[in-house]
Simulated scan of single mutants.
Amino acid sequence: MSPASKPVEVRVEDRLLKLSNLDKVLWPEAGFRKGQMIEYYTKIAPALLPHLKGRPLTLKRYPDGVDGMMFYEKNCPKHRPPWVKTAKVWSHGNNRDMFYCLVEDLPTLVWLGQLGTIELHTSLSLARALPQPRMLVFDLDPGPPATIVECCQVAIWLQEWFAGHKLKSYCKTSGSKGLQLYVPLNNPSVDYALTKKISKGLAQKLEREKPDHVVHMQRKTLREGKVLIDWSQNDQYKTTVSVYSLRARALPTVSTPVTWEEVEQCLQEGDPNLLVFDWETVLSRFQGQGDLFEPVLKLRQRLPDAV
């Protein structure tokens, strides 16, 4: 247990925040502390904030670190500062309105870090247009002994199908053990009925064509040595871990955008470690390459009507 540090007041842009327990170790294996987590989010903010802005955010909080108790928080905490913005979203499961946090600026991001929010999970929609997905997403999840290497092969098969329909797609690591493929849409004519139809149809198509490599159903008994193409993320009421979010793994790894050349290299060399990135590496990559995921926010594309 790290020694308790005294609370400090810091000015973040035009806001004054009180930060406490900055010496608390949140990743014991790495000795990575709360203050370092907040520093990472502050430095990556120029890349991260555009991907959070306007999107209902689910907090994944670990107040005692990655080995401690975790809880999801959909309703923005009632003790939030008055300047933290929220989005009202009707919850069918709870039969009431929920008020999600919106991360519109750096002070809000730092405040979330103070709460022990390690992971940031966003809607695929903007709060102002919830029925409209801004992107189609596949979460590629390997069933042991498969690894991210096998996910790279499946991602390439998906990328080839989209390229054949004149659509660009982009990859990021999950920051855990898998890979995620995003197809930017940013098109008001696209709804979740269509993204779900295309994503499920394509997952089923690949399962038929590559039955030894791909499965589209969640059942664990079907997944050994295969890659689950999780198409079900394409839903108005689900969230996906944000690009540049830290993950609550043994080490402070990050959901990191990667190039298709990197995906192909990982597949060719068969080395899953090629697509593992910690916070320092991600900051260095951003400084050198900029935001590889920026097109996901801006590129307008139209899906075909069927697979």
Rank of each mutant, 00 (worst) to 15 (best):
residue 256 T to H: 01
residue 257 P to L: 01
residue 291 D to W: 05
residue 233 Q to N: 09
residue 229 I to Q: 02
residue 276 V to N: 07
residue 281 T to N: 03
residue 275 L to P: 09
residue 272 P to M: 10
residue 264 E to A: 15
residue 292 L to G: 03
residue 269 E to W: 10
residue 252 P to N: 06
residue 229 I to V: 13
residue 251 L to S: 04
residue 268 Q to M: 13
residue 255 S to C: 04
residue 284 S to G: 01
residue 253 T to N: 06
residue 250 A to N: 05
residue 240 T to D: 05
residue 286 F to H: 12
residue 238 K to Y: 05
residue 264 E to W: 06
residue 243 V to H: 09
residue 233 Q to C: 01
residue 287 Q to T: 06
residue 263 V to M: 10
residue 266 C to Y: 15
residue 280 E to C: 03
residue 250 A to G: 02
residue 296 V to S: 02
residue 289 Q to S: 07
residue 281 T to V: 14
residue 238 K to N: 11
residue 280 E to I: 00
residue 243 V to C: 13
residue 267 L to P: 06
residue 271 D to V: 07
residue 296 V to L: 09
residue 253 T to V: 10
residue 273 N to C: 02
residue 282 V to M: 05
residue 287 Q to C: 04
residue 263 V to K: 15
residue 260 W to N: 06
residue 282 V to P: 04
residue 267 L to R: 15
residue 240 T to V: 15
residue 230 D to I: 13
residue 246 L to M: 15
residue 263 V to A: 13
residue 246 L to W: 09
residue 257 P to V: 00
residue 298 K to W: 12
residue 287 Q to D: 12
residue 256 T to N: 10
residue 273 N to L: 12
residue 281 T to P: 00
residue 231 W to I: 08
residue 281 T to W: 01
residue 233 Q to W: 01
residue 243 V to G: 09
residue 258 V to N: 09
residue 241 V to E: 07
residue 254 V to W: 10
residue 284 S to P: 01
residue 229 I to E: 01
residue 290 G to I: 03
residue 254 V to T: 02
residue 229 I to M: 15
residue 280 E to G: 05
residue 274 L to R: 15
residue 294 E to K: 13
residue 278 D to C: 00
residue 245 S to E: 09
residue 265 Q to R: 15
residue 270 G to F: 05
residue 282 V to I: 02
residue 254 V to N: 02
residue 246 L to I: 12
residue 299 L to P: 10
residue 239 T to P: 08
residue 229 I to Y: 02
residue 253 T to K: 08
residue 277 F to A: 03
residue 296 V to E: 14
residue 246 L to E: 04
residue 261 E to G: 12
residue 271 D to S: 08
residue 237 Y to I: 05
residue 275 L to F: 08
residue 232 S to P: 00
residue 243 V to S: 13
residue 267 L to V: 04
residue 285 R to T: 00
residue 287 Q to M: 05
residue 293 F to M: 11
residue 257 P to K: 01
residue 236 Q to N: 04
residue 277 F to G: 08
residue 298 K to D: 05
residue 275 L to I: 12
residue 266 C to N: 09
residue 256 T to V: 04
residue 266 C to V: 14
residue 258 V to M: 02
residue 233 Q to M: 04
residue 287 Q to H: 12
residue 265 Q to S: 12
residue 240 T to N: 15
residue 270 G to Y: 08
residue 253 T to G: 00
residue 282 V to T: 09
residue 239 T to Q: 07
residue 229 I to F: 04
residue 283 L to H: 07
residue 260 W to Q: 10
residue 274 L to D: 07
residue 272 P to C: 05
residue 290 G to Y: 06
residue 234 N to T: 05
residue 230 D to V: 07
residue 268 Q to V: 14
residue 289 Q to L: 14
residue 283 L to M: 09
residue 270 G to T: 02
residue 288 G to Y: 03
residue 299 L to H: 02
residue 297 L to R: 14
residue 252 P to K: 00
residue 268 Q to L: 15
residue 278 D to N: 15
residue 253 T to E: 07
residue 247 R to M: 11
residue 259 T to A: 02
residue 295 P to V: 02
residue 242 S to D: 12
residue 277 F to S: 07
residue 287 Q to W: 00
residue 275 L to Q: 14
residue 279 W to Q: 11
residue 245 S to M: 13
residue 262 E to D: 06
residue 250 A to D: 07
residue 269 E to C: 03
residue 239 T to V: 15
residue 236 Q to V: 13
residue 279 W to F: 12
residue 286 F to L: 09
